[in-house]
Write a protein that binds this DNA or RNA. Structure first.
Length: 406
DNA sequence: CGAGATTCATGTGAAGTATACCTTTAGGCTTAA
DNA sequence: AAGCCTAAAGGTATACTTCACATGAATCTCGTA
């Protein structure tokens, strides 16, 4: 917070900020949205994707494709990379090809059947209302859009397991069955999932249709991550701003988390930001530790802040009980406290049924750790514990109190 | 003592409801001929 | 008479509620050793 007396110096501060040499050359290279020129250690996978999808350049329908592997193994980047190349070539050669990338995990965008199809339509350049239309009607608009113009459509469904978990596999069934109805265009689906066993949980007919081709992305080892980091760092940072061992340490942290390259890159970026902010002329090892903390903190706090009020009230009850007694909690206790909190926060309390679902969602988000247990004679319940670092609890508490105006 | 039966506290699926939003339709008003 | 606007009617998706049944191990019950 900048105090009154400092305000005169604000201009000076900005000037100094501008004059100061940035450690970064091109920070974008470390951001998640960045698609690098070349992707290391994924040649085989990328080639395979390309092989599967190539027919669409000849206006033939490529096989549906299913890609799986744990987080941060480069599934999304590789896919985006191939799409990018395909699209460039397609425009060059005037091949009628379009690609839609959707992340099904994003709430309120693509987490129901209706919203998913609506999102496709929007991506194809037509507006549809957020609700109110029959789902059939939305499908019809989609068909028509496809049939009006002749082109090949490539749909990439990232985190497809979330979609199925929430809405069932009917969507996939409908999508895989669209093709025979289309006269002009063709539709291919690429599903991406972190969950390795996901595909086997599908109904056989959908399973076979979706996974005409499958590609597994193996995890990176520490050496590979190091190289990925070096490649990106070269683009992102100015020369010799990295202290000896920084790359190795980032890689080690990430390898710890089963080879998650995304985390490693984020770690490196945030370390750079911290170094810059503290006026260090180099990124040092201790910046990484700080970054590690900051990332987790930001992730959790942002998540907490973005939750709807009801969800926050539930979380507040959990936090309140949990921080008073560092032990597992049961659903009943939470619900009881939740009701009194609703009263204080001027909220209409939801039913226990609903709270049960909300708790399950928190579990999925990784804010809490819930386990279904039976206490025999004393019933059955979820055994719940907070799963965020306890150092964050006061901060979360603060946010919740503010948001719920308690 | 041990095999079933019982029990508790809540999970969970299905169906129903409230709300917000959409399109269609019918009526009323305006306008131009 | 045609055209335009508005409000009501009729329909949907979504978030939530209600209802009813499922769960599963600690505990109880009761026949048997």
């Amino acid at each position: 917070m900048i105090q009154q007396k400092d305000q005169k110096g604000l201009k000076g501060f900005f000037e100094k900020f501008l004059d100061k040499d940035s450690l970064f050359l091109n920070k974008k290279a470390l951001q998640e949205s960045y698609t690098p020129e070349t992707i290391s250690h994924r040649d085989k996978e990328i080639k395979k994707i390309a092989e599967v999808l190539a027919p669409c350049l000849r206006n033939e329908k490529p096989s549906n494709l299913f890609i799986y592997g744990t987080t941060g193994t480069g599934k999304t980047v590789s896919m985006k990379y191939v799409i990018h190349q395909l699209m460039t070539l397609a425009t060059e050669r005037e091949v009628p090809l379009r690609a839609i990338y959707v992340n099904c995990k994003i709430k309120k965008v693509a987490d129901t059947e209706y919203r998913l199809i609506a999102q496709f339509i929007r991506d194809l350049g037509r507006e549809v209302p957020p609700t109110g239309l029959p789902t059939d009607e939305v499908y019809n608009i989609f068909y028509k859009l496809l049939d009006e113009n002749k082109f090949n459509l490539l749909i990439v469904l990232d985190e497809i397991d979330y979609l199925v978990k929430k809405t069932g596999d009917e969507v996939l069934y409908n999508l895989t069955r669209i093709n025979p109805e289309l006269k002009n265009s063709q539709l291919s689906i690429v599903g991406i999932s972190n969950n390795v066993v996901f595909i086997s949980s599908l109904e056989p007919r959908i399973k076979s249709s979706l996974s005409e081709e499958q590609i597994l992305f193996p995890t990176y080892n520490a050496i590979q991550i190091q190289q990925i980091l070096r490649d990106r760092a070269e683009v992102a940072f100015k020369e010799s701003v990295l202290q000896e061992g920084v790359i190795e340490k980032c890689a080690a942290y990430a390898a710890h988390e089963h080879g998650d390259a995304r985390r490693a890159l984020e770690l490196l970026r945030v370390s750079g930001e911290i170094a810059e902010r503290t006026n260090s002329d180099k990124i040092k090892l201790e910046h990484i530790d700080e970054a590690e903390e900051k990332i987790e903190k930001d992730r959790v706090l942002e998540l907490v802040e973005s939750q709807p009020k009801q969800y926050q009230a539930v979380l507040y009850s959990i936090l309140k009980i949990y921080s008073g007694r560092k032990d597992v909690i049961f659903t009943g206790e939470i619900y009881e406290l939740y009701r009194t909190i609703c009263e204080k926060a001027d909220l209409r309390p939801l039913t226990q049924r609903r709270i049960s679902d909300i708790l399950a969602e928190f579990d999925m988000l990784g804010i809490i750790n819930a386990r279904l247990i039976s206490k025999g004679r004393y019933g059955r319940t979820r055994e719940i514990a907070m799963s965020v670092p306890s150092s964050l609890e006061p901060k979360i508490n603060e946010i919740l109190i503010k948001d719920l105006s308690l």
